[in-house]
Design a protein around this nucleic acid. Structure first.
Lengths: 184, 184
DNA sequence: ATAGTGATTAGATGATTTTCTAATCAATTC
DNA sequence: GAATTGATTAGAAAATCATCTAATCACTAT
């Protein structure tokens, strides 16, 4: 909802808070509000119209005056309803990962092993994609695949096991099974 | 509470809503947020600090990163709690009345009888202050007192009875009793 | 109809706020 | 302790917003 932002903005102003507080007490009209708040009718009108557009107040004519009153239901809602979006912004995390990957991979090579855990995990997970699920690799095969990306295949191999991406028994290596979801 | 305004302002911004939405999902940190929202870390920091100052988010260091998270209690409160002031603005209505009076009275004379009910009532109530409570006046006395303010004492006398400020029986006039409160 | 009055709109001005770049601070790793 | 990296601050530019004056609109009453 883009509208949430507009509703919040329609509230977040000193003058408009003053107006709302008066309207909580009693209905009122432009000229009276202008007088009570020491502002011109034009200014009050500007604020009331803004709030009316967002459904915070409503108005109706009564003899000479146009009486403004609150739409009170709105103010009962909890704050988070005005914040949370129903549209799931897709791929926000992926965007971050792409940024990290493009920073550490240049021309198909890993320029350095990231120091920070979170970035290292992203990079290692990218390399792990070169291995097939279910297939068993010898240590030499593992090393040579990793070597395409970086010279220090030992560190990387060890780290991949440390992060639980890869499993090992004696000389045999394979992708850990429950890691499948992260590599698709 | 002046603070209410600051809290609302700390929420009412597109970027800050985006940040809050991400933090509803999971805790995060400056650089990651900057990347996801395609803004610079400086900008994200600016927004986070603003929200932290208002108690919307909190932060704690964890290894390399400073992790930001929500103060979730705040977002459960209904909207009106962020609007209503506990300080009763005193004398707002009086201010309006003063404005009306100074518009219709010039040099101690009533320049014209207002057309609108609300204003006419204010003006008449002002003139009624010249009469003593409990005292009984003849029609001539009433007329001459009113005449100090305006030539058309008949209309004004009639209107004061119409509004219930003054009572009449035959030739005798007196201030209506339950009007006392309004004239102090 | 016409005059009077409250409400609204248009346009201009000044204030506030968001954003960036560049520099600095603070914590971590080698 | 030197270098790296994430967070913060300062200062400037650009965008947004509140307010006013003046003109117009819409309704009421004579």
């Amino acid at each position: 909802m883009k509208e949430n932002l507009e509703i919040l903005k329609a509230i977040s102003d000193e003058t408009r808070l003053d107006i709302l507080n008066i309207l909580f007490r009693e209905d009122s009209y432009v000229e009276k509000l202008a007088c009570e708040l020491s502002l011109t009718p034009a200014t009050i009108c500007y604020h009331l119209k803004k709030m009316e557009l967002m459904g915070l107040v409503k108005c109706s004519r009564s003899q000479f005056y146009i009486i403004y009153s609150l739409n009170r239901e709105i103010f009962e809602k909890p704050l988070y309803e005005f914040i949370r979006k129903n549209t799931n912004v897709p791929g926000n995390d992926e965007k971050y990962e792409k940024e990290v990957l493009s920073h550490f991979f240049k021309y198909g090579k890993l320029t350095q092993i990231p120091t920070q855990q979170k970035k290292r995990e992203i990079v290692l997970r990218e390399i792990a994609k070169q291995f097939e699920h279910g297939k068993i690799y010898s240590e030499n095969e593992v090393n040579s695949i990793i070597h395409q990306y970086h010279e220090d295949h030992c560190t990387i191999r060890r780290e991949m096991i440390g992060f639980g991406m890869m499993s090992r028994e004696k000389e045999n290596y394979w992708l850990t099974e429950n890691e499948k979801d992260n590599n698709s």
